[in-house]
Design a protein around this nucleic acid. Sequence first.
DNA 1: TTTCACTGTAACATTTATGATTACAGTACC
DNA 2: GGTACTGTAATCATAAATGTTACAGTGAAA
Lengths: 137, 137
Amino acid sequence: MNSDFTLAVHSLTLLSLLPDRMSTSDAIAESACVHPVRIRKVLGLLKKQGFIQSREGTGGGFVFTKEPSEVSLWDLYQLTANGTIQPKCPKSNHECIVGSNMKHVLTSIFEDGEEYLGSFLNQYTIQDIVKQVKQES
Amino acid sequence: MNSDFTLAVHSLTLLSLLPDRMSTSDAIAESACVHPVRIRKVLGLLKKQGFIQSREGTGGGFVFTKEPSEVSLWDLYQLTANGTIQPKCPKSNHECIVGSNMKHVLTSIFEDGEEYLGSFLNQYTIQDIVKQVKQES
DNA sequence: TTTCACTGTAACATTTATGATTACAGTACC
DNA sequence: GGTACTGTAATCATAAATGTTACAGTGAAA
């Protein structure tokens, strides 16, 4: 899985800790050690989904507009990592009964598998992450 | 996920259809449209685990030495793709409470998540894949 | 009404992961 | 000894992920 998911969780966790003010992409990027442009891209997805709001210009940035308990890891997975557990299926030989069907068979199984994983990830919310992060420090 | 998992499933499915003779890495590679060396690498893992046997030299190749119903997709996932659902966590800022703990928190959740996914993949065996592949054609 | 501090987004560069290819030693059969 | 395989390491090519630069748009504030 690429790190967009992690950046989404990281960003929302940070924003949860600073609910009363705008946080800039530069500040979030510094905490996550990535380039601010990546943060802006990932947060763009979260904004479309209504999880956060942004404001341009001086004093602008991002704020969390939902309760941390309302956003689950499954929500964020679907936004940023949907389909990543699918095993890569190299195009295979259509002359062969196995080659010609393997991709479809595995894709279908892993679609169901991803839904199944979803019911696990749905148990965890940003609130839980905030709690755990605080506990560990 | 890289395609080792798919190649493992593909290879065992083929071998299941040809239980009475040795199949060469060249033949399997042709069905899967990949390089024979990759097949030999992946099948090396399966051999260590005792799923197949190989013989070198003329007339050599690979044979399945277990029942297709005894090998599950979870077995093959663990061999070839363990840890791939872990979200990438870029090294993060240790000055920051979030940065310093995010990696550990997410890793722990996704270890459990992978186990959970395991109980799903464990439902499917190579026999099921063989059946589905036959059905579709 | 200009300047400054932001977001939004596209284009390009770099790094890393993945897979292909080559090479060759080892083994078994003929 | 020749041929047909596996086993494995090393190198090369390609694709995916990420970083970087550039710049237009926006809003606050001097």
